[in-house]
Amino acid sequence: MRPLKVLATLVLFSLLSACSWFGGDEKVAPDVPEQELYEEALSALESDNYDLAIEKLQLLEARYPFGRYSEQAQLELIYAYFRNYEPASASAAADRFIRLHPNHDNIDYAYYLKGLTAFEQDRSFIAQYLPIDVSQRDPGAALDSFESFSTLLTRYPDSEYAPDAQKRMQFLKNRLAAYEVHVAAYYMKRQAWVAAANRGRYVVENLQETPAVPDALAIMAEAYTELGMDDLAKNSLDVLQLNFPDYKIRPFKQRSATLLQTATFGLLGGDEPAEPARPIPLADRQRADAAEAEAEEAKQEERSWFSRMTFGVFDDEDETVQKTDR
């Protein structure tokens, strides 16, 4: 029995010594002054080293939770998470700051960063440079962003971030309206008339002044007609024709298959149901504007080159011809 106790004691001492061999006695880094930690974090942010900035800011908050830089460090941490493409952490950090400091002077910045994080969350590299209709995707992040920006504008209308938030809200509003119409069109193809009419009515009542409103009215008119609610269908059609006289009305429901369409497996003999109008993405509009400006600049260069070659002899004549044509 005694040899067993001796053996157990030896094993215990060997394990304790092994801990020291493998780093058990590792030295703890000395405490860094609060101001030095904060300056190191700011330096990392300025050099776009967001991983290091997050590490320094977390260390600052852990060691000096009630220090002079703790609140500002929490704000900087939201920004660092946002720039480091960590939307979940950025949103959680923003919620934590709002909960802990509801009367802070810069709380509008926390709401703005929270909305901006959700705004950029589902915008991938491909979606920015290819004509992908993001309005058909899940609008969860868009709803979160819209809610944060709406809170910012409601509580802090004079904030310096309010103008940008308002512009982004209009974009989000258009996107959410387009999504609702896409869902309504899907219900029309499945002959779910009540669901389609309710989606269209939601757009008309809550998302006015968006490009999706005429499609929503057309869906409402068609769905109410299928339900036998002729008065509501007529009202929807009257509003559509009065406010959008150039809108081309096409059926959104799935038509019955003809004999030719059945024989060709839907390739011939039938018209596809109407699709909601697709808003032009921002990237496409920017490319179109840039191409137009480049063409105009090239045209001006060609005119000036011709003027130099002819020493300006034909300039007056061209102006006279233009005035005569007018």
Rank of each mutant, 00 (worst) to 15 (best):
Ala178Thr: 14
Ala178Asp: 15
Ala178Val: 02
Ala178Pro: 00
Tyr179Asn: 15
Glu180Arg: 14
Glu180Tyr: 06
Val181Pro: 12
His182Gln: 14
His182Gly: 14
Val183Glu: 08
Val183Tyr: 02
Ala184Ser: 09
Ala184Trp: 07
Ala185Gln: 04
Tyr186Ile: 02
Tyr186Trp: 11
Tyr186Cys: 00
Tyr187Thr: 01
Met188Arg: 05
Lys189Trp: 04
Arg190Ile: 06
Gln191Ile: 00
Ala192Ile: 11
Trp193Leu: 02
Trp193Pro: 04
Val194Gln: 09
Val194Leu: 15
Val194Pro: 00
Val194Phe: 13
Ala195Glu: 05
Ala195Trp: 08
Ala195Arg: 13
Ala196Leu: 12
Asn198Gln: 10
Asn198Trp: 00
Asn198Asp: 05
Asn198Leu: 10
Asn198Lys: 12
Arg199Cys: 01
Arg199Ala: 01
Arg199Phe: 04
Gly200Arg: 07
Tyr202Phe: 10
Tyr202Ser: 13
Tyr202Ile: 01
Tyr202Gly: 02
Tyr202Asn: 06
Val203Cys: 06
Val204Trp: 00
Val204Tyr: 05
Glu205Ser: 12
Asn206Gln: 15
Leu207Cys: 02
Gln208Ser: 14
Glu209Ser: 14
Glu209Asn: 15
Thr210Arg: 05
Pro211Gln: 12
Pro211Asn: 09
Ala212Ile: 08
Val213Trp: 04
Val213Gly: 00
Val213Gln: 05
Pro214His: 07
Asp215Gly: 09
Asp215Met: 12
Ala216Trp: 04
Ala216Gln: 00
Leu217Gln: 12
Leu217Asn: 08
Ala218Arg: 12
Ala218Asn: 15
Ala218Thr: 13
Ala218Lys: 09
Ile219Asn: 03
Ile219Asp: 08
Ile219Met: 07
Ile219Glu: 08
